[in-house]
Amino acid sequence: MSGEHIVRSFEQELQRISNLVTQMGGVAEAQVAAAVKAVAKRDVALAAQVTQADQRLDEYEREIDAEAFRLLALRQPMAQDLREIVSALKIAADLERIGDYAANIAKRSLALAQVPVVRPVVGIPRMGKLVEGILKDVLDAYTERDVAKAVSAWERDQELDDLYTSLFREVLTDMMEDPRNITPCTHLLFMAKNLERIGDHATNVAETIHFLVVGEPLAGERPKSDTSSVTVVGAGETPQEMGNP
């Protein structure tokens, strides 16, 4: 086998693993969108589809892992080629977790659909739209190897944290105003946290893309502004009256 053929074959193998990651990303993106839609529309059938489809992402991750380890063992790649393979492993792991969180949202939407609608539920589609935008941008950035687009998506994580904190306060207020809201609002809290975590994994992907293309970690501290852990809602307060914690 000639050296040129070996190089061409290796490039094709690297492209295949990149294509698998892109395909997996498309499935993860669709899962998140469907889970959020199931909440907004109280669509039990769609929620069930999301939970059942989660195994597709697991299968993609196993295939990417197997292909990556095979290339590491047989090709002993270096520099950019090594970064391609390691990045595929890391991104696949993040996408698998994103799928898990989407499935969790779908499962809770099944329970939420059995109880009366509560006011803060409108915050889930709002958060979902932002998460979907961030996820789409990082997946496009991976396909295009576009560092600027990846960094732009990375910076939007703070906006998502702000939305999460705002929804967190609104849900707590509703729970305090009417104990009958506790059960549905608890589901909303978990859904909102799942979306916030999906955003975190999307920013992980953005950081991996920066490493893949530039060869160095993304400089600077990840923008975070989730203050839900220190949020306190006093009796009779509304989110507008509380100010910053």
Rank of each mutant, 00 (worst) to 15 (best):
E11Y: 15
E11I: 10
I17P: 08
S18Y: 01
T22K: 13
M24S: 09
G25F: 00
E29R: 04
A33N: 13
A33S: 14
D43M: 10
A53P: 07
D54N: 10
R56D: 14
R56H: 11
E59G: 11
E59D: 14
Y60K: 08
I64D: 07
E67S: 11
E67F: 01
A68F: 06
A68I: 02
A68S: 11
F69M: 14
R70K: 15
L71C: 05
Q76E: 08
Q76H: 09
Q80V: 05
D81L: 08
R83E: 14
V86N: 11
V86F: 11
S87R: 03
A88H: 07
A88Q: 01
L89E: 09
L89A: 12
K90Y: 13
E96S: 12
I98A: 02
A102T: 02
N104F: 05
R108T: 00
R108Q: 01
L110W: 00
A111M: 06
A111P: 07
L112G: 03
Q114Y: 03
P116S: 08
V117A: 06
R119W: 00
I124Q: 09
G133K: 06
K136C: 15
T143R: 14
E144Q: 13
V151H: 03
E155Y: 09
E155F: 04
Q158E: 10
E159C: 01
L163N: 02
T165W: 04
V171Y: 08
T173I: 07
M176L: 10
R180Y: 14
N181G: 02
L188R: 02
L189Y: 08
F190I: 01
K193D: 10
L195R: 03
G199K: 03
D200P: 10
T203R: 10
T208V: 06
I209L: 09
F211C: 06
E216L: 12
A219E: 13
G220E: 13
G220F: 12
D226V: 02
D226G: 05
T227P: 11
S228L: 00
V230G: 11
V230I: 11
G234T: 03
G236Q: 01
T238M: 14
T238R: 13
P239H: 02
M242E: 06
